[in-house]
Design a protein around this nucleic acid. Structure first.
Lengths: 214, 214
DNA sequence: TAGATTGTTAATCGATTAACAATC
DNA sequence: TAGATTGTTAATCGATTAACAATC
């Protein structure tokens, strides 16, 4: 098996392929060519073949790709042929919303604990879980083998909580707080940067409105 | 003023500069060099100067950049020297969470209406607003001059709602539904792709765990 | 003036696209 | 076999980094 290091740009596209192929399966599509994927997804056929060949020879000359096979392979590459144990820290509006986000659950990200420090929120039921106080965090991480934390605190608390999450041995953080976390270990942090998306909209609307002027 | 078309990669970094400069202002930093920004943000000094020079000559040889000035300039470039009129469609957990996200409000994105179709939700109060039925959508968009919609429906409803949003003359959509929207006009859509972030974490955790094997 | 740091041109690097031989 | 489509090498394009003259 080849093992050059895969370009970041390719990794960013993998979830899109995964999503697209799932749709194809739902529509009972059995085989598909890079050309067909190209037309549906808007990448070039060449790029699609290049991307996939970073991981193996999934296709067949003269035939194309078997949709089920390709989907299974990409799932495996993405590491979602297993279940992850997840905790949410911060059970405010956002934490509650995320806990109800079925899409995550469906792909094997199982929420096993929810934490907060606010006495008005601790003890509340969210789905089948009861919000626990952060006092119990380390204990519960151990008990449930928590691997990933969804960080849904406010901006001010985020850094301190992240460090505690790191120290508890959690491997990954999905950070919803609008702040860059500084970590000591190689814990993997992914930022949502919701504000950046909004600023991007703002930028593009502005550019358009000024294009009509000068 | 120069007006070549600005690389996408640069535009994606603008919000990060904006955020960083705001922090510097809060810490009463008056001037800063590309070298200092470089060290704090982890880009090269060269890249920072290249990025900024897409929009004008904001610095001064031998001095660097005035933090306040640069922040004001980037704000203007991002189009956030004005207030935007925003509506939320979908007042479930996510819509409610987003409506409470003060960060958006603080940068001038003002939520003026919230909509849903669920009879259990319509009429409910969220902050100072009452959730309205989608029947009133077009009327309210007109009344409040809505420019941006936060799309917080489920995946199934997203496409149909997006088309209605488009037809009502809204200019931009921040899409929280895990689906690619197909638009007819040049309405600007930004996708949050929360799942993609989670899959990215999964991928990196998997790569690390298999590095120890082979 | 001397020192610092920008703005900008040129060099390098990485990612995308084109082309085509291999092969199902 | 003939047609289709992959896997892969080579060419192009775009973005990042290095270097340095301009200048505050």
């Amino acid at each position: 098996m080849k093992k050059k290091n895969v370009p970041k740009a390719v990794i960013k596209r993998l979830p899109k392929y995964h999503r697209f192929l799932k749709e194809q399966i739902n529509q009972d599509v059995v085989r598909i060519s890079s050309r067909q994927i190209s037309q549906a997804m808007g990448f070039t056929a060449s790029q699609i073949r290049q991307d996939l060949n970073n991981f193996g020879d999934f296709g067949q000359q003269g035939y194309g790709y078997n949709v089920e096979d390709l989907y299974a392979n990409i799932s495996k590459i993405l590491g979602i042929n297993k279940t992850y144990s997840v905790a949410i820290v911060g059970a405010g509006n956002l934490g509650t919303a995320i806990s109800n986000y079925t899409q995550f659950d469906r792909l094997g990200f199982k929420i096993n604990a929810i934490f907060d420090v606010n006495p008005c929120i601790v003890g509340k039921s969210i789905g089948l879980l009861e919000v626990q106080h952060m006092d119990k965090f380390e204990e519960e991480v151990e008990k449930h083998g928590i691997e990933i934390v969804y960080l849904c605190t406010n901006m001010e608390a985020a850094q301190a909580v992240a460090e505690r999450v790191e120290n508890a041995g959690v491997k990954g953080i999905l950070n919803f707080a609008p702040t860059d976390l500084v970590m000591k270990t190689d814990i993997y942090v992914e930022n949502t940067y919701l504000i950046d998306k909004l600023l991007s909209i703002s930028y593009h609307l502005k550019v358009r409105s000024t294009e009509n002027d000068g």
